[in-house]
Design a protein around this nucleic acid. Structure first.
Length: 853
DNA sequence: TAAAGAAAGTTTTTT
DNA sequence: ACTTTCTTTA
């Protein structure tokens, strides 16, 4: 009955059937990795008789776990099962574990902890900076937050960070102080940030043998997707979970490691065999996704990485079309080109799915507009997610408050939204008292309204009482009793029997809804553990949707919006309606309760809500990992954008950018377009931009040029065939071109042309690597550019010691380069020069020893 | 206190 | 360019 294996190739088969012991699957792009994991899970259940709930599959994104879940359901269709495998992200797995067992950690946390997402955590950091009396210009909340997060991920606690920080500089010492206060407040608020979810779960497994034992017994087969992107905490988590059984299967591709900046450690996959001695290694090297040409171009690019294990990815697919290239005038015309092309493709094949991949979210806007204008239904991934909308977060904050009024972060968020007469003065007064008494804002408010010593107006008192009654009303609905003060909570409750009950899988929790699921997913009838709610973790009888409605109506939120009578308010109301809909869906799935709904809203990211069959999907290259599309556009392939300028300084980071480019290209099944613009607006300023070095690393013969007029590509082709033009010498040899790490020659030429047409020198402006074009000069450039690319300057002779932008200079080490901009005067005059092969350099003219060339 | 106007920071990628 | 945050004014 099961021909799970018949559709798999030899290696895939091995990967599915090698069920016992550690297994490392090195799976190249498009080699059927997800299929293998799904089949493996199904095989374990159907062929090896493993109880589904002994299986754990971990992914990074909810999107990936949804995908996995639906594939597994598909394979197991028709089987009568009484549990389901747990397919979860790292973060929600940790939430699950912690919601059950965090009290065993004895750190004062209770099972009703709240999760602070990025935004909450940033607020808290801001508060800490303010309360420490630090100058937030010097410390910078964002920088502090990311420093703290990085430290936490390195496994440092505030003390060890502080110990190190004391001796470095004042700024770090300040951050250390913020860190200490931040951690203290998290604890006092019974709150965990994203990092804590992993940290506490790891600590729990490490320090409490009974808990570790329990989960080892529960999860007998563990699978980890995208293993190349795990960080040290995730590695620790997996190691502890599989300590006993060692049935650990990880899947990954070092070439697709793109999250080093977030602490991912590619040595986790490279050294897997050392960590798990009996490891079996299987390589999946046949690509089923892309055409030969696409694969060739992508491979050619990633081959430029030095730090890389060579591997052979091959395909039996036909060569397909060449990949297509377009040089646009600016971002708008780039977007217009993409939209027009998508229309053409879809005219020929109406159900062709397209993806537009960019490096930064900021680029999405123009594409969004172009799609709208072209009447193409598009789907945007990233940017502001639904749950990040102000009004949605406000309502969630009300609900959080209802569950735990001591959550001061949530309280601050909504105490005066909608406006109810609680202004800055009143808030300051609350803050002052809260600090004096060392209690939460909520408790402070109770003291103040009960007539404690204060200097608030009657009006303010009345406003506070009003707010109080709103929250009390809401918490009555969400279910009694109010949360105990975190620190007085039931610390040290042992592991009761309830804790040993299995963790319900997502399906089990959504429940019995699955039984009625028309898609026929496996029937799940696992005791949704009733006895797991000694706390008020999941107490309420009310429907989540009713609670959400109450939070919108009874707080006056809806009325305030209705009163505004603006389009914006209208849109917000619609979003709130969406939130109610989401809650209704949730209720229908038989979900567990408000707490989980709120957790979900914190952990779900926008990346997860992409609709698989949208005609056009707009997203970052990062978000595209794991997806595939027949038609793919990689846009903004410009130096400083992709690769991003922040990565340019560091060779390792540049290689990560290149892998990112590889990931983006290998999303394409049949058609791949690469585009760049000659100029684009950044921070509201027009900047000239040069083609990405990654374009230069693609085999030119596999590229078709669709640009109008003279493009960089036309020039690059020309330059590789021209024989004896001295100016082009360095570009004659293909090899030299292939290893070319810096600017492209001809675009520099075109910029030279532009500069030569300038009357005056650039005034020193923002320190940007790119050259600046003022709007008055833009027209000159536009009209010039058409003719400029193929011309060869013989640069105007200048006074020997003067190097105006547009002139060529020779440098002892870097050779010949083009002066892009000049700033400063006299001895401090600095030049930004573009050297082929070395990129852009900033030189102090006096010391650089330049000569005109 | 709230609304309107001015200044400053923002954009790398995300659970 | 755009959004957030601070400052001014009614």
């Amino acid at each position: 009955m099961t021909d799970f294996l018949s559709s798999l190739n030899e290696e895939q088969c091995q990967a599915v059937t090698a069920t016992e012991g550690p297994l490392l699957i090195l799976a190249g792009a498009g080699s059927g990795k997800t299929r293998v994991i799904a089949h493996r899970i199904a095989y374990l259940i159907a062929e090896r008789g493993v109880a589904p709930w002994h299986i754990l599959a971990v992914t990074f994104t909810n999107k990936a776990s949804q995908e996995m879940r639906s594939r597994v359901d598909q394979l197991l269709k028709g089987l009568e099962l009484n549990s389901a495998p747990l397919i979860s992200t790292f973060h929600s797995l940790c939430v699950r574990i912690l919601r059950r067992d965090i009290q065993a950690l004895n750190e004062g946390y209770t099972r009703s902890f709240t999760i602070y997402d990025q935004d909450d955590s940033l607020r808290l950091v801001k508060n800490c900076i303010k309360d420490l009396g630090l100058d937030d210009k010097q410390v910078g909340p964002r920088a502090a937050q990311s420093a703290i997060s990085a430290a936490k991920n390195r496994g440092q606690d505030p003390d060890s960070y502080a110990a190190r920080a004391e001796h470095i500089d004042e700024k770090r010492a300040s951050i250390a102080r913020v860190f200490i206060l931040y951690e203290e407040r998290l604890r006092n608020n019974n709150a965990l940030d994203f990092d804590d979810l992993l940290i506490k779960a790891v600590r729990l497994l490490r320090d409490v043998p009974e808990v570790r034992e329990k989960y080892n017994d529960r999860f007998r087969y563990i699978l980890v997707d995208e293993y190349q992107d795990t960080n040290s905490l995730q590695f620790a988590l997996v190691s502890f979970l599989t300590e006993k059984q060692q049935n650990i299967c990880v899947v990954g591709d070092p070439d697709q490691s793109i999250y080093k900046w977030r602490g991912a450690d590619v040595t986790n996959i490279l050294n897997f065999e050392q960590h798990f001695p009996a490891t079996k290694v299987i390589r999946l090297e046949q690509n089923y996704r892309s055409t030969q040409n696409i694969l060739d171009v992508a491979s050619a690019v990633v081959k430029h990485n030095i730090e890389r294990k060579e591997k052979s990815l091959w395909t039996q697919n036909p060569p397909g079309e060449r990949i297509r290239y377009y040089q646009a005038m600016d971002a708008e015309s780039e977007a217009r080109f993409v939209a027009a092309r998508i229309e053409e493709h879809r005219a020929a094949e109406s159900d062709l799915r397209a993806a537009v991949l960019y490096r930064t979210n900021a680029q999405s806007r123009v594409f969004e507009e172009a799609m709208r204008r072209a009447n193409l239904a598009y789907n945007i991934v990233g940017g502001f997610s639904f749950y990040e909308r102000m009004e949605v977060r406000d309502i969630i904050a009300y609900l959080k408050l209802a569950l735990n009024p001591n959550d001061s972060i949530a309280l601050q968020r909504v105490i005066n939204s909608p406006p109810r007469g609680i202004g800055k003065l009143t808030l300051d007064e609350i803050e002052r008292h809260a600090k004096d008494y060392g209690v939460s804002y909520w408790e402070t408010i109770s003291l103040l309204t009960a007539g404690g010593p204060q200097r608030l107006s009657q009006r303010a008192i009345a406003a506070l009482k009003n707010f109080q009654s709103i929250i009390l009303h809401l918490s009555k609905l969400t279910g009694p009793p109010l949360a105990p003060s975190p620190l007085v909570g039931r610390v040290g409750v042992g592991l009761g029997d309830a804790d040993l009950s299995p963790i319900p899988s997502p399906q089990a929790e959504r429940g019995e809804g699955t039984a009625a699921d028309p898609s026929g997913s496996p029937t799940v009838r696992e005791g949704v553990d009733i006895n797991s709610a000694p706390d008020h973790v999941t107490v309420s009888d009310s429907l989540v949707s009713d609670l959400v409605k109450a939070a919108i109506l009874d707080t006056g939120y809806e009325n305030a919006l209705k009163g505004e009578n603006t389009d914006e308010a209208e849109a917000r109301l619609e979003n709130l309606q969406e939130l109610v809909n989401a809650a209704v869906d949730y209720d229908e799935q038989g979900a567990e309760g408000l707490r989980e709904f709120i957790d979900h809203s914190a952990l779900v990211s926008d990346t997860d809500q992409y609709k698989r069959d949208a005609p056009v999907t707009l997203m970052t290259a990062h978000s595209a990992k794991g997806l595939e599309f027949p038609l793919v556009f990689i846009v903004g392939l410009e130096d400083g954008l992709f690769p991003h300028s922040r990565a340019a300084a560091d060779a390792a980071e540049l290689e990560e950018e290149r892998r990112l480019c590889y990931v983006a290209m290998t999303r394409a099944e049949r058609f791949l377009y690469v585009t760049h613009a000659v100029k684009r607006r950044v921070y509201g300023q027009e900047l000239a931009s040069e083609p990405s070095q990654f374009l230069n690393e693609m085999p030119l013969e596999l590229i078709e040029d669709l640009s109008r007029g003279n493009s960089w590509l036309a020039f690059a082709r020309g330059s590789s065939t021209l024989k004896d033009d001295g100016e082009l010498k360095s570009h004659r040899e293909t090899k030299a071109r292939a290893q070319y790490a810096g600017k492209t020659y001809d675009s520099v030429e075109s910029i030279a042309d532009f500069f030569r047409n300038r009357a005056a020198n650039m005034p020193g402006g923002a320190p940007n690597l790119k050259s600046q074009i003022s709007s008055s000069e833009r027209k000159t450039r536009n009209s010039k550019l058409k003719t400029s690319s193929s011309q060869h300057p013989t640069s105007d002779t200048q006074a020997p010691s003067d190097f105006p932008p547009g002139s060529y200079v020779r440098h002892a080490k870097y050779g010949r380069g083009l002066v892009l901009r000049r700033e400063g005067v006299g001895d401090s005059m600095k030049l930004t020069v573009s050297f082929p092969g070395y990129g852009q350099k900033k030189l102090v003219q006096k010391y650089a020893g330049l000569e005109l060339a």
